[in-house]
Structures are given as C-alpha cells and as structure tokens.
C-alpha cells in the first residue's frame, strides 16, 4: 500500500514515455489514488527499508561475503572510501559530466521541441529523423564520439547530452501539439493575437509534458554517464564501478552502486517536486 503511489508514478512514467496520448490517462490514474497519509507512508517506507536490510543480510550470509558483502561491510567500505577521498572526487567528476550534459540537453531540447510544435511543417519534416535517432541505441555512437571528441570530459558530456536530449525534445514537442483545441478556439474568439495564444495557452499547457521529459531525460542521462565513464577514460563513479567490479572488491563496488542510486533518486525527486509545484492547480 505504501508503495502503491510510487508504483503508479512509475507506471505513469512508462506510459508517458510511450507517447503523448497516454499522458492524460496516466494523470487520471494518479488522481484516482490519493495517498492516504504521508506519515503512514513514511512509516511503511522505513519498515520496508528494514525488511530490505534483513533480506540483504540473509542473502550475504547464504551466498558468502565474497560474492555479496554484508550491509555492515558495505558501510565500513563507504566510510573508508569517503575518508580517503576517492568517492568524493568520483562523485564530483560524474556530476560535472552528468549535470552539464543534462543542462545542455535541456537548453537544446526544450526550445527545439517547442519550435517543432509551433511550426507544424518544420515539426512534420523533422519528426521522422528525431524518432529514428531516438530509436537508435545511443551506445552505437560512442566509437564515433571517441574518434571526434576523444576520451575526455567533452566526449562524456556529449554522450550524456545525446541520451537526455531525445526524451526532452520529444516530450516538449508532444506537449505543444497536445494544446487544448477548445481553449485555442476560446482564445481566438476573444480576439487574442496568435503570439499571445502561443505564450498564454500553448506553452503553459506543455509544461507538464516538458517536466516528464526532463525526468526521463535525467534517468537516461545518469545511465549514459556511467556508460560514458566505462567506455571512455575510466573515471568518476562509472570508473570506480569498473575498477572494483573487475578486482572483486564487492563491498566498495556496492558503495558505488548505492551512490549512483542516491544521485538518481535526488535528481528525479527534485524534478517531481518541481512538477508538483508547477501543477498545484491540478490538485487543489
């Protein structure tokens, strides 16, 4: 029960990434199921965390700590890694790549999607290529990127950018296209000029779509950060992952995995918070 809303949110993400028509259905789903009580949910979450820890401990003892380190061993490894500084440096490297790639993807993707939606001919012309690029596994471009940009920060940032760009662009485009026809006619009947219709009806209506795009883009961007760090110069959290994984230092390896999970949660939760702020009118 405690996880139900989260499951629903995940389901909504999946639906939304499938296409714009699913968005409305998914929002309706969310509204059907209001969370019972935030305190209760917090309680359930802590309970579930304890359960996970217990399962982890059991699994570690059964499988042997060489394969699966115990929670305690992982905690000690975390203290060492933080104390010696590698982890902080790695987080710094990864975040630099991740956030700059993501930021460039926003700066390029949102305006491009909006312009494609605003000028139908342009949108219709380009959308085939955008969808084709979105369907191509971006990993396929990595050798080319290495040839062009080398193994450094630029190449890594570009790989993140390429991954995050597509969902951001496609959702911004879909958001503009999904503008409410009835509101558009209302605005025309009032005598609102075209430009003002775009800024006061079309763009605000696209905001929820854009934020969904940012959330999907943030997730893919983080994946691509790790991929980039594995394929190009081995650095950052992805680099540590490779080093500890290859040398079977499983406790340290787990620390890195958990760090990545934490970064992902922080970023997507921040975006979820922004979404809630922006769409306050929906829930009142």
């Amino acid at each position: 029960m405690a996880l139900f809303k989260r499951e629903l949110a995940m389901l909504r993400d999946v639906l939304q990434s499938c296409g714009s028509s699913a968005v409305r259905t998914a929002f309706a789903l969310r509204n059907l199921c209001k969370p019972p009580d935030s305190l209760m949910i917090a309680f359930y979450r802590i309970g579930f965390f304890a359960l996970l820890m217990a399962l982890w401990q059991v699994a570690a003892t059964r499988m042997g700590t060489n394969v699966l380190p115990s929670p305690l061993a992982t905690w000690r490894a975390a203290q060492t890694l933080v104390g010696e500084g590698q982890l902080i440096v790695a987080i710094g490297d990864s975040l630099t790549v991740y956030l700059s790639g993501f930021a460039i993807a926003i700066i390029v993707g949102v305006p491009l999607g909006v312009v494609m939606g605003g000028f139908r001919v342009l949108g219709k012309t380009l959308e085939v290529y955008v969808f084709a690029l979105a369907a191509t596994p971006r990993v396929a471009f990595i050798p080319l990127i290495i040839v062009l940009l080398g193994l450094g920060v630029e190449a890594k940032t570009f790989i993140v950018f390429l991954g995050a760009l597509m969902p951001i662009l496609i959702n911004a485009y879909a958001g503009v296209l999904a503008a409410d026809e009835e509101l558009l006619e209302m605005a025309r009947s009032v005598g609102t000029p075209r430009g003002r219709i775009f800024t006061s009806i079309v763009l605000p209506g696209a905001v929820p779509f854009v934020i969904v795009g940012l959330r999907i883009g943030a997730t893919i961007g983080l994946i691509n950060t790790v991929v980039a760090e594995l394929y190009t110069a081995v650095r950052g959290l992805g680099g540590l992952l490779a080093i500890y994984g290859n040398t079977f230092r499983m406790a340290e390896y787990f620390v890195v995995v958990l760090t990545l999970a934490t970064v992902g949660v922080i970023v997507t939760e921040s975006l979820r918070y922004i979404e809630a702020r922006v769409s306050r009118w929906r829930d009142v």
Partner: peptide
C-alpha cells in the same frame, strides 16, 4: 464546455 484556463 466552459473552456476555462485550468492553471489560471
């Protein structure tokens, strides 16, 4: 259908 702007 009223056609009010929902976010305003």
């Amino acid at each position: 259908s009223f056609r009010l702007i929902p976010w305003a």
